[in-house]
Computed example of a mutant assay.
Amino acid sequence: MIIFLLILSVLAGVFLGKYFGVKQKFAKNLLILSAGFLITICLNDVFPEVYAEGNSNIGIFVIAGVLLQMLLENLTKGFEHGHFHHHHEEKNILPVALMVGMFIHAFLEGIPLANETDVFNPYLMGILFHNLPISFVLGAFLIQKQKFTTTSWLIIAFFAIASPLGLITGNYFNPDFKVYFLALVGGIFLHISSVIIFESNKNHNIDWWKILMVICGVILALVGHLFHDH
């Protein structure tokens, strides 16, 4: 069921991008909403679980996740932040590099889901919500003449199976390693969500709509957290 949800979230985001990709405001709002949701999941669920293990060095893995995401962005060119319009103008961008960067990102996210059976797990909800804007951007970027090419479908499929493959691979790891992968992904999530939320607004003016979208994302995450607890 979890594997099905992971794949479905990618396909849903891709088709949203196909039909609404030209509406930049829609894409921006979805991205900001997901960032508010994701950072709340990190601070309210992921990090408490990570630090509850009592490992004094676990923070190193969180920092490693932040640094890893910075490296991956050299491949993805900021797709995770919604920066995709400039890709159309860059002749030297390698689709292979983009695919590899996004695959590694999604694969790592899937590993902590190993042996998970709770479809309302907050971490899983964070990934599903996170997949929507990334896949939205991917769908908007790949669409050509109102239809997907064979190459487009291969890229979508490659990304869609990444997290499920991570989940399956995680089943073969020592369960004690889960907390380290969770800390690593927590760092990745923290970097992505904070960049989206805190990147400078035009002329450094207060963007009230952006703040509202973040608050909505936070509320959604908190409601999911409360629902899960009960």
Rank of each mutant, 00 (worst) to 15 (best):
M1D: 15
L8F: 07
S9V: 01
L11Q: 05
F15T: 01
L16I: 08
G17K: 01
K18Y: 02
Y19W: 07
Y19P: 02
K28C: 02
L31S: 04
L31G: 03
L31K: 03
I32E: 01
L33C: 03
A35R: 08
A35M: 06
G36S: 03
T40H: 00
I41S: 02
D45G: 10
V50A: 09
G54E: 10
S56V: 15
I60T: 12
F61N: 03
V62T: 11
I63T: 10
I63S: 08
A64E: 05
A64D: 09
Q69R: 12
L71M: 12
K77H: 15
E80W: 09
E80F: 13
G82Q: 00
H85G: 12
H88M: 11
N92W: 01
N92Q: 07
V96P: 01
L98E: 07
F103N: 08
F103L: 13
I111Q: 02
P112H: 11
A114W: 06
E116I: 13
T117P: 10
D118V: 10
D118L: 11
F120G: 06
Y123G: 03
L124S: 03
G126A: 02
I127G: 01
I134M: 00
S135L: 02
G139H: 00
I143P: 00
T149G: 08
T150C: 14
T150L: 14
T151S: 11
S152F: 08
W153H: 07
I156L: 01
A157W: 12
F158M: 11
F159Y: 10
G166I: 02
I168N: 04
I168F: 14
D176C: 12
F177H: 13
L182V: 07
V185N: 08
G187T: 12
I188N: 05
I188L: 15
L190Q: 05
H191F: 09
E199D: 04
S200A: 11
H204I: 13
L212F: 11
I215V: 14
G217H: 01
V223H: 00
H225I: 12
L226D: 09
D229R: 09
D229A: 12
D229G: 08
